[in-house]
Design a protein around this nucleic acid. Sequence first.
RNA 1: GUGAGUGUCGCCUAGCGGUCUAAGGCGCCAGGUUGUGGCCCUGGAGAACGAGGGUUCAAAUCCCUCCACUCACCCCA
Length: 416
Amino acid sequence: MLYRAPRGTSDILPQEQAYWRYIEQKVAEIAELYGYERIDAPAFEDTKLFARSVGEDTDIVKKEMYTFEDRGGSLLTLRPEGTAPVCRAYLEHGMKNLPQPVKLYYIASIFRYERPQAGRYRQHYQFGYEAIGDDDPALDGEVIDMAWQFFLSVNLRSLSLQLNSIGCQKCRPNYVAALKGYYASHTQELCSDCKTRLKRNPLRLLDCKKPSCQMVADSAPRSIDFLCPECADHFSRLKRYLQLLDLPFVVNHHLVRGLGYYTRTVFEIQPEEGGAQSTLVGGGRYDDLIEELGGKPTPALGFAAGIERIILNLKKQKVAIPTLAKPRVFIAYLGDEAKEGAIKLASALRGAGIGVIEALGDKSLKAQLRQANNLDVRYAVIIGEQEIKAGTVILRDMTSAQQKSVPVSQLQGLLK
RNA sequence: GUGAGUGUCGCCUAGCGGUCUAAGGCGCCAGGUUGUGGCCCUGGAGAACGAGGGUUCAAAUCCCUCCACUCACCCCA
């Protein structure tokens, strides 16, 4: 084989498309229900947009971006996440002049140069909802509710909703300092990865998977104990609203999220029987991001969900999804004259909204019907020399194997 | 970037140093007489055995390198 899809990418084949259609429809339905409108940003952006927003020190920026220089010398990057482009669009189009918050959603391909494994791809798809321009915890509740309702609507069950608050610019430094202090006295118990995390990104110490590090993390200071009064109030009101909505969240003190821009609320949704790359939804508040990108201080939040991972779980849970429509009629013909009749008939039927597949070439009727059978079509319409003369066709029901001669004029009605 | 496992027709699998210019099943195509499918029967197309180097009289079968896939780590949806 000369060419294959690049590593970490894959073709979404016809037999998979029903899942994609299903999810895209649900995403749009939920959006409509909550008043979110679709936005499609370009697949690549100025590299600096992601470097600034995601955080220079994150792995995404340091080693996972598809960055290239175009012929004009601009440094561009295939989007490694969906939030920054939406924020850029918010600023670029002056959306602060719209009624706030501005509520947007997207479905987009995402590119990250990582080693592929179960549930992780170099090109994959995420959808996300973003609400920009309000800091009311009720908005946090709404966004989390949307994520939860989405999964209810696609019939995925046994999910867990994890919640935490990591504070704001004012209170988080105190927490990080306390965390560092705590970990400094436990360095000898840490794995080598955690030793570097202690220097680079102390918050990430909390979700190391190694059991020995988990033990250390279990007794570590908790972010919610260091929240400033405003953040603490925000968090407790959010929890109140989530209770009102009957959302079964659990506060996870180890949940910190990887992207650099999060403030206050962070949350994830994952299967209860979680494997390695199992997180279905990750999101949270990013109150400083718009300002960081050059706008006025503007609170905002959102989440992103991985579509391939959702499909993986739909299959695992054997969720029944609607099948895609396909033509119900196959037209077979015998001879050149009949072929011309078949071409005209197919066109007329399609004009009436009836899906039709035509035979091709100069095959035996047997071969044509075999094809009809393989196409899993409901009816075969057969046209031969006799039918052309008589102005009729043979209508064959492929499931019952009953067939009868009918006038062409009546065919359309019989196929409805 | 690290570690482990895998790599034979579109799919699944047999072969594990000579009988393999590779076998079977599914699928695909065509026939089984004159204008008819799905079952059955017959036939056909389709892989130089991931790629490139070795070892050997001889390699799909042994060795090396690379590539890809799968899973895990890092990280993340």
